[in-house]
Design a binder for these strands. Structure first.
Lengths: 118, 118
DNA sequence: CATGTTGGTATCCTTTAAGTAACTGGCATC
DNA sequence: GATGCCAGTTACTTAAAGGATACCAACATG
């Protein structure tokens, strides 16, 4: 089967859909932290620099609603709550990897720009 | 040479850097439209559905400052202004391609979710 | 019995993104 | 001479994101 060729309007639409889900400072960092093995609320908070409890709490709910994370409550004493990534969340990996690459390169570009005195 | 292995904090930092540059509804769509051959202000506006002149104007300035677009003024009568993407802008392509793919798949996921009655 | 940890809420506030609408000057067309 | 195109600008408003701080119950540790 041949690759579908999308036109520019469709591409823009899909990119905007993606942006709608991942945009903002925190969603991807949170998913990365959870994926990296941080499953408890306070662990995630420690893994994501500078996030406040209020924002983390809100974002976790958002991500759960979007089926990107799963929240599990264990009725141990005291109750423990864990967050894990869904397979769907893992489907973001190729994109995130590209973002890491680009961000890394971007830092280098900024340095170059400074010294080059455009 | 071996791949550098980045730790989670570094990865998060780079992703946040990238998000800082591309976040928001409009920057990527604008770059995609320009890259697709729309170089005049009104052409870009027509190619990016629902964007207003005010927002387009602001975003174009932002993108120019970040070396992602080049603005050229021709002193013809009346003056014409064109925008073109920089090579640096083109370096975003792998990431954007992944975003298109993910957005396309996401629509399908949402449909599935509706019918599956979780 | 004071302090710390856990998983959060509740309030309040500031900042940023984005939208609405009107308007500009210069030229070209009807 | 009214209308329209081009490339925007200006002023105002609203909505959303994010941040600061305090607090809660339940337990555990010193």
């Amino acid at each position: 089967m041949a690759k579908k060729e999308l036109n520019i309007e469709q591409k823009i639409k899909y990119v905007q859909d993606t942006l709608f889900v991942i945009s903002g400072k925190w969603k991807l960092p949170i998913m990365m932290a959870v994926n990296n093995g941080n499953s408890r609320f306070r662990d995630i908070q420690r893994a994501v620099p500078n996030i406040t409890t209020r924002v983390l709490s809100k974002e976790l709910k958002d991500l759960e609603e979007n089926r990107l994370l799963i929240r599990t409550v264990y009725d141990s004493l005291p109750v423990t709550v864990t967050y894990t990534v869904t397979p769907y969340c893992k489907s973001l990996k190729p994109m995130v990897d590209e973002m890491i690459k680009w961000g890394e390169n971007h830092r280098a570009e900024l340095k170059k720009a400074k010294t080059t005195t455009t």
